[in-house]
């Protein structure tokens, strides 16, 4: 039981990170119907920017931890947003209205570019970071087995919940969110009614990148090791999460992220660590076969 609860806590933490990345996939898919393959690498760029900012801030002599983390988070979100915006501007906007596979190939190309760019400028070696936030609360104790909820995990879960709440507000209440939902339904009609479609799509990428960078910061602080390749697997998992939850649906992305995180942790906890990816992907395949539009997705209506 204690072991189960510990795994549950770990799974929710991991799931929060996946969920934050998955939102970027699901929003972009919802609005322009493409798989943004470079999104996982945007997450990686976010983690790198966070690492460098952290080192720079510490080198400047600021040591008050909450302030350091706040600066890291803000800088990382801003800078990663610029990266997200640039990727959209360079690789996707020229292909808007082109046939379906063209932006997919540029997305894969951008993914290769980002990975290798980071490898060239920052080196291929893994970047270790000593734990910044240590300690935690012991929830249960039985026969020497401690169930721990670390402060880092609390931070990740609380940040994710806050961001999700803010984000849901943004989509449901603001004019930007309204414009986004309009573009999702019908871009031509939206532009006829005075919505700047290009700008809305750009902002979607910016928001997705900002959330991915938060995930990157969390990943960096939680695991303490990053390299230029972390984006691929995290991206595939997050996309799996988005599809699992029903692509295009925001609560779905979060739910899918949590599920993938839980499946992975429980599988590694109870069966084998090596096959955790296989477990996650198999669940995806099974869900898609029986529920082709994901858990919370709207069923596709075929029109003739």
């Amino acid at each position: 039981m204690e072991y189960f609860i510990q795994q549950l806590i770990n799974g929710v933490t991991l799931g929060s990170i996946y969920g934050l990345i998955a939102i970027g996939y699901t929003m972009v898919y919802g609005i322009i119907g493409m798989i943004n393959f470079a999104h996982g690498d945007i997450f990686m760029v976010g983690a790198f920017i966070a690492l460098i900012t952290l080192l720079a801030v510490v080198a400047m002599g600021i040591t008050f931890l909450p302030l350091v983390l706040l600066i890291v988070l803000i800088v990382s979100m801003l800078m990663t947003s610029v990266w997200g915006w640039s990727v959209e501007r360079i690789a996707y906007r020229p292909l808007r209205g082109s046939f379906r596979l063209a932006p997919l190939i540029t997305a894969i190309g951008m993914s290769i570019v980002l990975q290798n760019f980071v490898q060239v400028v920052q080196g291929a070696r893994v970047k270790p970071l000593p734990p910044q936030i240590t300690g935690g609360i012991t929830i249960m104790e039985k026969d020497g087995f401690l169930v721990q909820l670390s402060y880092m995990q609390i931070l990740i879960i609380v940040t994710t919940v806050l961001l999700m709440a803010g984000f849901t507000m943004l989509i449901n209440k603001t004019s930007l969110g309204r414009a986004q939902r309009a573009c999702e339904q019908d871009q031509k009609m939206a532009s006829l009614l005075g919505v700047n479609v290009d700008r809305t799509i750009s902002l979607t990428f910016v928001m997705g990148a900002a959330l991915a960078s938060v995930a990157g910061v969390m990943f960096l602080l939680y695991y303490g090791v990053i390299d230029f390749y972390i984006g691929f697997l995290a991206g595939v998992k997050a996309f799996t999460a988005a599809v699992l939850g029903g692509i295009g649906s925001l609560p779905g992305a979060m739910l899918g992220g949590l599920l993938i995180g839980l499946i992975e942790t429980f599988w590694s906890g109870y069966f084998s660590v090596e096959y955790k990816d296989v477990a996650a992907f198999s669940i995806l395949a099974i869900v898609l076969i029986f529920m082709p539009s994901g858990l919370l997705g709207k069923p596709e209506v075929e029109k003739v």
């Binding site: 540029t106 570019v113 290798n116």
Partner: peptide, 21 residues
Amino acid sequence: QDLRMLVFGLLMVVIMIWKPR
């Protein structure tokens, strides 16, 4: 070495934008 993979990715993007078909 590493640079050629970078160029490979860029080439993919550029060719696709130049000739999406």
